Simulated assay, not measured.
Amino acid sequence: MKRLLIVLLVIALIGWSFAAAARRRRVSESEYQYARAAEARREAASAQSDARREARRAAEEARRAMREARDEAQRALREAGREIREAFHEAREAWHQAGDENRDAWAEGADEVREAVAEAAQDARECVADIPVPIVPGTRTVEASPEPPRAPESPEAPEPPGFPGLARDHAAPQPPAAPQAPSRPRAARPQATPATRPAEPERWVVGLVSVTEERAHAEARKKLEQEVSDWLESHDIPRSWTPPARLVEGMIRESRISRIDKEYGTVYEVRIRPDFSPERMATLRQAYRDQLVRGRLVLLGSALAFVLTCLAALSGYIRADEATRGYYTNRLRMLTAVGVGAAGGAIYHWIA
């Protein structure tokens, strides 16, 4: 009986020892897991703090880069503006210098022309100075009276020594003067008649025959426009330029419509007498020059507007990208490109 109790007691002790060992093992494992979890939490917290520091550093560097880019863009804009102003001043100085040179050249040319005219007049006076016939300005040579040249006077003989006045008292006799021919009465100078302008031949523009009067007038008008284009091209005005309708209408002096009876019916023909005078050409040339200058100004203004639009879009993109801290860079770039393209298309359609 005692042995049985001892065996049971030993078995109980062994079981209790195993249970205690298992409990200690479980406690140690839980502590180890807790320690590992705490260490993992510490590592995650440190990694998160490092990531936040890196993000703040990256954001600071991005803001610094954006500020530098903005400063560079502003500096480039200032440089471009200064270069444009310098180029404008240089162009203006070159223009003034060219104007001064042209004025000096014109003055020198005028002086040379005056000197040449004076020399020519002096040469003409020297050429006619030895002519015995007096020439009166405003008369013709056939109306002058001929005069023989005078006989040369004989030189006085030298006085002999000791006899003063002897050579003067016994001077050589002078030959008798030749009789002058009676002068002819001067004919009346014909009055200059003002030059009359030759009458220009009448020029008619005949349109194609048409069934109705409206179509006849339209055909005549089309023919007149073709004639006007040919006339302008002959005076160095390109055919691509279309004169305004009011000027073409103003060229019509007279319009006649003829009714022609044919076997197949009645047709109409319109004849137009246009004004192809130099005054009308001067009016059309002035209109062409005004339109050419207006087109060039519109083209220059459109180019400046497009450049200003591009600069405004670039400035807006930089400010918006800086305000959003670079989170919408691609979208802002696409929006800027779309805005610039739309502005360019609108300006092109406005010019066209």
Score class of each variant (00 low, 15 high):
residue 100 D to N: 10
residue 334 M to R: 15
residue 209 V to D: 10
residue 125 R to P: 01
residue 171 A to P: 01
residue 207 G to C: 00
residue 171 A to R: 14
residue 250 G to R: 07
residue 52 R to S: 03
residue 251 M to V: 01
residue 36 R to W: 09
residue 226 Q to N: 11
residue 190 P to C: 01
residue 10 V to G: 06
residue 174 Q to H: 13
residue 296 R to T: 03
residue 62 A to P: 08
residue 12 A to C: 04
residue 299 L to V: 03
residue 56 R to C: 10
residue 151 A to W: 04
residue 103 R to H: 11
residue 307 V to P: 01
residue 351 I to H: 14
residue 102 N to L: 14
residue 90 E to G: 10
residue 26 R to E: 12
residue 301 G to Y: 11
residue 327 Y to K: 06
residue 53 R to T: 10
residue 111 D to A: 15
residue 166 L to D: 05
residue 175 P to I: 15
residue 39 E to V: 10
residue 250 G to N: 07
residue 38 A to T: 14
residue 167 A to N: 00
residue 23 R to Y: 13
residue 347 I to Y: 01
residue 120 A to Y: 02
residue 45 A to Y: 05
residue 79 E to Q: 02
residue 116 A to P: 00
residue 296 R to K: 02
residue 107 A to T: 14
residue 229 S to N: 00
residue 347 I to T: 12
residue 288 Y to K: 13
residue 219 E to P: 00
residue 218 A to I: 02
residue 332 L to Q: 03
residue 218 A to Q: 02
residue 4 L to W: 10
residue 130 D to G: 09
residue 97 Q to I: 08
residue 86 E to M: 10
residue 279 E to Y: 04
residue 132 P to N: 00
residue 182 P to Y: 04
residue 233 E to V: 04
residue 217 H to G: 06
residue 194 P to S: 06
residue 352 A to M: 12
residue 247 L to N: 03
residue 185 P to F: 12
residue 15 G to P: 00
residue 241 W to L: 00
residue 178 A to H: 06
residue 62 A to H: 10
residue 281 M to W: 04
residue 124 A to H: 04
residue 319 R to D: 04
residue 17 S to T: 11
residue 262 K to G: 14
residue 120 A to V: 13
residue 26 R to S: 08
residue 15 G to I: 02
residue 256 R to D: 02
residue 102 N to I: 15
residue 79 E to N: 01
residue 192 A to P: 11
residue 287 A to C: 03
residue 32 Y to E: 15
residue 332 L to M: 05
residue 173 P to W: 02
residue 128 V to P: 01
residue 337 A to L: 14
residue 290 D to W: 13
residue 116 A to M: 02
residue 152 P to E: 05
residue 16 W to L: 14
residue 40 A to E: 09
residue 299 L to P: 00
residue 104 D to L: 14
residue 40 A to P: 09
residue 272 I to G: 00
residue 179 P to N: 08
residue 318 I to A: 07
residue 48 Q to Y: 07
residue 211 V to N: 04
residue 237 I to K: 00
residue 309 T to W: 05
residue 161 P to A: 15
residue 347 I to N: 02
residue 146 P to H: 09
residue 323 A to L: 15
residue 69 A to E: 06
residue 351 I to T: 10
residue 202 E to N: 04
residue 160 P to L: 12
residue 174 Q to R: 15
residue 256 R to H: 04
residue 54 E to K: 08
residue 81 G to F: 09
residue 19 A to V: 13
residue 340 V to T: 09
residue 131 I to E: 03
residue 64 R to T: 15
residue 274 P to R: 01
residue 190 P to M: 02
